[in-house]
């Protein structure tokens, strides 16, 4: 076989560095399962988040009157997410959904920029982004039913009952498009970085990739985090009715 065919044939496994790699294989109830790079990366991201949470807890049990660097940074973060949620959802709903939006904001942001730590970003695995999309989808419909009661069902038959299939399709496509958007962006960055590191000569692998990392990991990751959280809040608010 020629080299191109070898790359194509092997890339599903260990040939290229940007695909999900299986580290430990095991069998459970007759299913072949494996611990992949995604699991390791998620554990590391979660550990960092837990450590951050403990540090914040310790710091804010005895807050300084004149905030230092860490305290100002955390205050800025909370204020930023809080403003952003209440801008989209109104002050009352904004408080209720601050927890959820803030959690997924921190998790997705840290996941997206974990490429800088040398990890394979967990969000470049569709098995991570689809549950995030489904969580948002569940929240959308649960809160829609709770706040609009019968109006929730009626909305499917508007403007005329003939539109039911189209409304259903648009509801089903919401979590898919949310998750595919995040997955595609992070995955494309990962593929570009993997191609650069595996195909370029050694002198181009030093220094130059830092600019690519800034674009693909930091910029793209931050924007996609923002978009995901913004669409989450907008969709939930849209189903719940007008902000009061």
């Amino acid at each position: 076989m020629n080299p191109a065919a070898v790359i194509l044939a092997e890339s599903g496994g260990s040939g290229m560095s940007f695909m999900i790699r299986h580290l430990v294989d095991f069998e459970l109830f007759g299913q072949k399962l494996s611990i992949t790079t995604t699991h390791i990366a998620i554990v590391i991201v979660d550990l960092i988040l837990i450590l951050f949470a403990i540090a914040v807890k310790v710091k804010f049990s005895h807050p300084d009157n004149v905030p230092g660097t860490f305290q100002s940074a955390v205050e800025f973060l909370v204020e930023f997410v809080g403003n952003f949620v209440s801008d989209n959802m109104g002050p009352k709903n904004g408080k209720r959904f601050l927890n959820y939006t803030g959690s997924i904001f921190l998790f997705i942001l840290l996941s997206n920029i974990s490429g800088l730590l040398g990890l394979r970003p967990p969000t470049a695995d569709y098995g991570v982004t689809l549950p995030l999309g489904l969580l948002t989808c569940f929240l959308i419909h649960f809160n829609g039913m709770r706040s609009k009661k019968f109006g929730y069902v009626k909305a499917y038959f508007e403007p005329i009952p003939l539109f039911l299939p189209m409304n259903l399709i648009s509801e089903i496509s919401t979590p898919i498009s949310l998750s595919l958007r995040l997955f595609g962006n992070v995955m494309s960055g990962t593929v570009m970085m993997g191609l650069w590191y595996s195909l370029m000569p050694v002198f181009a692998r030093l220094g130059v990739p830092s600019f690519l990392h800034i674009y693909f990991d930091l910029f793209s990751g931050a924007i996609q985090t923002y978009v995901f959280c913004m669409l989450t809040t907008i969709f939930i608010q849209d189903k719940m009715g007008d902000p009061e």
């Binding site: 958007r181 595609g184 494309s188 978009v227 913004m230 669409l231």
Partner: peptide, 15 residues
């Protein structure tokens, strides 16, 4: 924000 949303259809092709 608008560009990030408009990117979605291209990402379907990429996927």
């Amino acid at each position: 924000l608008g560009q990030a949303v408009a990117e979605t259809t291209g990402l379907y092709g990429f996927a």
